[in-house]
C-alpha cells in the first residue's frame, strides 16, 4: 500500500511539473525558437537545426562591441542587431534544406547555417 501511495504522488508531481525543460518541445501552435549569439566575431552555434515546413524564430543576441547585420539571403531576412541587444527574427516555414546567414556588415565573419529538416 505505501508503495502505491508513493507511485501516486510521483504521478501527481509529474503531472504538475510537466516535462523537464531540457526535453521541452514546441507545441503545434508554439513555433520553434533557435538561439544564436554573436560574440568575438563569430556566431555561436554556427549551425541551427529547425523543423522543416513549420514557422520558426531565430533569437539573435549580439554580445559584441559593434553592431551586426544578421542577414540570410536564402531566407530573405535582414536585421540590425546593436551591441547588447537581442532580437527575434520571424521565419516562414522553410522547405528541407540548408540556409546560410551572415553578418552583412563584416564579410570576414564566418557564415552560419540553418538546417531545416
Amino acid at each position: 500500500m505505501p508503495c502505491r501511495k508513493n507511485l501516486l504522488s510521483i504521478l501527481v508531481v509529474a503531472a504538475i511539473a510537466g516535462p523537464p525543460a531540457f526535453c521541452r518541445t514546441a507545441g503545434a501552435s508554439e513555433p520553434t525558437v533557435a538561439r544564436v549569439t554573436f560574440n568575438g566575431g563569430h556566431f555561436e552555434p554556427a549551425k541551427l537545426t529547425v523543423p522543416a515546413n513549420q514557422p520558426f524564430q531565430v533569437r539573435v543576441t549580439n554580445t559584441d562591441r559593434t553592431a551586426i547585420e544578421f542577414e540570410s539571403f536564402d531566407l530573405h531576412r535582414e536585421r540590425v542587431v546593436r551591441p547588447g541587444e537581442t532580437i527575434t527574427v520571424y521565419m516562414a516555414p522553410a522547405a528541407p534544406g540548408h540556409y546560410s546567414f551572415c553578418d552583412d556588415f563584416d564579410h570576414s565573419v564566418a557564415e552560419g547555417a540553418i538546417e531545416a529538416r
Binding site: 530573405h76 531576412r77 536585421r79 520571424y90
Partner: peptide
Amino acid sequence: RRRLDFSAWRDYLYDPGTAARK
C-alpha cells in the same frame, strides 16, 4: 535580387523588422 527582391515581398512582411529595413 539578393539586396531586394520585390517578388519575395510577402516573405519580407512575415518578419516586420526585415520589411522595415527594406
